[in-house]
Design a protein around this nucleic acid. Structure first.
Lengths: 218, 218
DNA sequence: AAATAAATTTAGTTATGCCTAAATATTAAT
DNA sequence: ATTAATATTTAGGCATAACTAAATTTATTT
């Protein structure tokens, strides 16, 4: 049985290693978890002991098969709970992350299964992030970050890549939500900012914002 | 902020001290929490430090005002989650206690408030136990343990006082649930067992069972 | 009232998960 | 290829919350 701390480390390593499952550095983990590198070292040793990570001193970590499995199931729980919080309890999409961080650690496979049924087997959470199924398989998504699109291309917002309330609130102000249609009007080479059209309103956004908005091209 | 361990102690002291708020012994707490008396001593000292209990060495503990308040809010969360698990996720009443033990520690007043609305402000949980409101006030209930009734009295089951799956399963087998009509046919002085009528079927139950079934007289 | 039994507390350990400061590896710069 | 800078680990502590064993207090017998 994994503790909450262990689960958070596994989840973080999963997130930072990306689809390519590349090795993650101690400092990157410490940064993400707002803790010290020395604490991370301690934990990595423990997780390696439990065969949940492959850890080579000074060379970073990767998750093992069982490590990946646990991480994905935490992600599944997190996202299912977010759907519940938004769809059933009518929280706003910027209010649910913190609460889901707690709920994701509740241990009961039966609960997850029933929650999934109750919510009608959702494939995406309120931020458009894919929800893995019981087997750990993700629904396929072909989305591109908004900052990688060419001028004049049109697309639909399918997801956002950041959970921070400040970011989500900013999107609300821009009238951007999941499903919103966006057209690229102009790319500004100087600062890589972008001019876009949202519901026939012209907006100007930074790359930092654009790279966290995922688009499905039309 | 209280830790989960602290919350469990407060909840246990609240439960064991009863409506009269009488002093609770170290061993009684250790027994209930399946831990050692020495561990309880340690924790009581800590809770006293935090002003959550009145603790006199060798003389037991009582909860302070803030201690009672925390305990009641844990009970509120526990019971609201049980309603959710049974009414929304269709768990059986004997399956929800363990999961609610975890959910009760989720920290978010907003979540509790919205859950309460979602469930339609329930006054009783699936076991018939009263759910305190946000202010900590319990709905008034006039229920008597089945083993205290006189011969020939009739009443309705309004609650059960034990959450153990084995007990609840036994009640299922007897066809006893919240709302069931019961008539006392005979009291047996020898072992204090009771003959009762449930849906025109005669049943024989022990005092240990009877005292955990709460009746509202007709 | 003294002696025994029972309940409770204290002292000393342990595991988890974090910390700071110091030591050691790795990477980058000259 | 040294040296300097950065990253990472080790060593030594701390708080929480549990434990065992020993000491102490309270309750019960005789």
């Amino acid at each position: 049985m994994s503790s909450q701390a262990e689960e958070n480390y596994l989840k973080t390593i999963f997130k930072l290693s990306g689809k390519q499952r590349k090795s993650v550095s101690t400092n990157a983990i410490a940064d993400e978890l707002q803790t010290k590198a020395s604490s991370v070292s301690d934990m990595l040793k423990k997780l390696a002991e439990k065969n949940l990570v492959n850890y080579i001193k000074y060379q970073g970590v990767t998750l093992t098969k069982p490590g990946v499995s646990i991480a994905i199931h935490i992600v599944r729980k997190h996202r299912l709970w977010e759907v519940f919080l938004v769809n059933s309890l009518h929280f706003k999409w910027d209010e649910v992350h913190e609460i889901a961080e707690q709920l994701e650690h509740i241990k009961s496979p039966e609960l997850v299964a029933r929650l999934d049924v109750f919510l009608n087997h959702p494939n995406y959470d309120p931020h458009g992030d894919p929800i893995p199924n019981e087997k750990g398989e993700f629904p396929i998504t072909s989305a591109v970050p908004l900052n990688q699109l060419k001028v004049h291309s049109k697309g639909k917002v399918v997801a956002v890549d950041l959970d921070e309330p400040s970011f989500l609130n900013y999107l609300d102000k821009l009238n951007v939500s999941i499903g919103t249609l966006i057209e690229i009007i102009e790319l500004n080479d100087f600062d890589n900012s972008i001019d876009i059209l949202i519901n026939s309103t012209k907006r100007h956004i930074s790359t930092d914002v654009a790279k966290n908005i995922l688009i499905s091209l039309l």
